[in-house]
Design a binder for these strands. Structure first.
Length: 492
RNA sequence: GGCCCCAUCGUCUAGCCCGGCCUAGGACACCAGGUUUUCAUCCUGGCGACAGGGGUUCGAAUCCCCUUGGGGUCACCA
């Protein structure tokens, strides 16, 4: 049996799309599972929109996810080059072969004529298609046009019949060739078109399986016909269900972030991104939600991919992201969060390095509360704030003011706390002592805790208050209580 | 509109290919309760689906047909 060779062939006309990332992941996992090769090819025949920066960003994105490739534009390989624009000579050879066989023909129709043709057809409610005006030109006429300097396009001469292929996710798919237009393979400027190059390159690179998004399903008959005209082995296909936005349509910027990088920047752990992407169209076993990229490789089969499109559920994604964060080691989590903390202006790298243990404890305190790395800064900002400038969030202040005896209690507690701090009580002692103090005073816990939390953090929720006092330092804790005594006493 | 693809809880899905074990399972979200100094975590419970109609069969979520609904695609883009 032939070795599996699959590829991911992005077009460097934008950042790596989240759907593209999933396509890459599934191709890669298939290759790894089957012991085959995974290659990367850059489809840059659209010279207007393709850039080297996008290409680099796409490669980086894939590497970041943990996808590696056996052949590609950056590392080369036996089928180099891996950029389509560098292979146009090969494409011209294929075009010449097809032309010679009569499987393709020169077309001299102008864009204007084509446009008028389409307009007329749609006005008459006919399907837009080329009328094959140039399909049967005499050789002399072709030569004359060529000699006159008219630049032709090359069209594929679609034969009559029906084109069928087995799709690994959909089963048999068939198209009447009448539905397939005599599509353009090579532009007038000599640059080949996607549907043509993809076949040439897949042949030259020995691609055995083509797994791509469902939007390519209608391109497949064109490509199958091309393989057949060339007398080449048709690869196996698998069309992945589309990833949909909340509007049920193909995921677009309209309904949410579409680039892998967006999610990276929003602080989603990459393991969560991978896991979630996998779940869009594939399931490990129907009951295991959390699994690793290794589990994917060990279990992935194209036949298990779902047929229906999947709506991107950001809620579930956030939940999953939180699961990964809770599972993470504090050290790693802190490292992942650090860029976000710095970016938020809370501290510099040097400042965090200088208080490494302190920062680690902060992260540990928030680990079960954040769902993405980017949520950390907003939650811990109070720890970096000036004592008199802690921002009181509405909920926190409301909770504090809700306690009628709150302020008086806080004022008395401040005295006790100052004393306890003086005696260098440990955090545990402080905690136990406070509980005893509240008990002795004969009030409910929240009477003290709500105003105290507001004073210290300005937030309605958060980690244990005594851990916070330790993190803050006793003097700062007292200063914050003093500030709160004034601020909370003021009329609303 | 033509063609193609698809159709299980609001969402992601298991089950479907090889009909019975499905009183349709899991997860997110939501709701209720428990734990807790708060929030969160965690635990318990609840809500909630085989799009509709015909067949085939002793028996259909599973097979077939139709209808409806949704999506994709109709470029000298990929």
């Amino acid at each position: 049996m032939k070795t599996v060779r699959v590829r991911f062939a992005p077009s460097p006309t934008g950042r790596l799309h989240i759907g593209g990332a999933r396509t890459a992941l599934f191709n890669w996992a298939y290759a790894r599972r089957q012991g085959g090769k995974f290659l990367l090819r850059i489809e840059d025949t659209d010279r207007e929109r393709s850039t080297l920066e996008f290409e680099r960003a796409i490669l980086e994105g894939l590497s970041w996810l943990g996808i590696d490739w056996d052949e590609g534009p950056d590392i080369g390989g036996p089928c180099a080059p891996y950029r389509q624009t560098e292979r146009v000579e090969r494409h011209r050879e294929y075009a010449a072969r097809l032309l010679a066989k009569g499987a393709a023909y020169h077309c001299f129709c102008s864009s204007e004529r084509l446009e008028a043709l389409r307009e007329g057809q749609s006005a008459r409610k006919e399907k837009p298609a080329y009328d094959r005006k140039c399909a049967n030109l005499a050789k002399a006429e072709v030569d004359a046009q060529l000699a006159a300097g008219v630049k032709p396009v090359v069209r594929f001469n679609v034969p009559a019949g029906t084109t069928r292929f087995q799709d690994h996710v959909r089963g048999e798919v068939s198209f009447d060739n009448k539905e397939v237009d005599d599509w353009i393979m090579v532009r007038a400027d000599g640059m080949p078109i996607y549907n043509f190059v993809v076949v040439c390159d897949d042949i030259d690179m020995g691609i055995t399986h083509v797994f791509r998004g469902e939007e390519h399903l209608v391109n497949t008959p064109k490509q199958v016909l091309l393989y057949e005209a060339l007398g080449e082995m048709v690869p196996e296909f698998g069309h992945l269900p589309l990833m949909l936005g909340t509007d049920g349509k193909k995921l677009s910027k309209r309904t949410g972030d579409t680039a892998l990088q967006d999610y990276h920047e929003r602080g989603y752990p990459k393991e969560a991104i991978i896991n979630f992407l996998c779940l869009q169209g594939w399931a490990l076993n129907g009951s295991t939600e959390i699994f690793s990229i290794d589990d994917l490789v060990a279990n992935f089969d194209i036949k298990d991919v779902t047929k229906a499109g999947a709506i991107f559920d950001i809620d579930k994604f956030q939940w999953m992201s939180g699961e990964y964060i809770r599972k993470d080691s504090v050290e790693h989590l802190a490292a992942m969060c650090t860029p976000f903390v710095i970016k938020a202006g809370l501290a510099t790298q040097a400042e965090l390095d200088a208080r490494k243990e302190w920062f680690l404890r902060i992260v540990r305190g928030e680990q079960e509360r954040i769902r993405t790395y980017s949520e950390l800064p907003a939650r811990i900002g109070f720890l970096f704030a000036k004592d008199e400038a802690v921002i009181y969030e509405a909920d926190a202040e409301k909770n504090a003011r809700k306690q009628p005896a709150g302020l008086a209690t806080l004022a008395d507690y401040r005295v006790w706390l100052a004393e306890a701090l003086q005696q260098r009580k440990t955090t545990a002692e402080l905690r136990d002592g406070t509980k005893a103090w509240v008990g002795a005073r004969g009030v409910k816990m929240p009477v003290l805790y709500q105003p105290l939390r507001c004073a210290l953090t300005g937030q309605a929720g958060g980690p244990d208050l005594f851990d916070l006092i330790e993190l803050l330092g006793g003097d700062h804790a007292l200063a914050r209580i003093d500030a709160a005594l004034i601020r909370l006493a003021a009329a609303v």
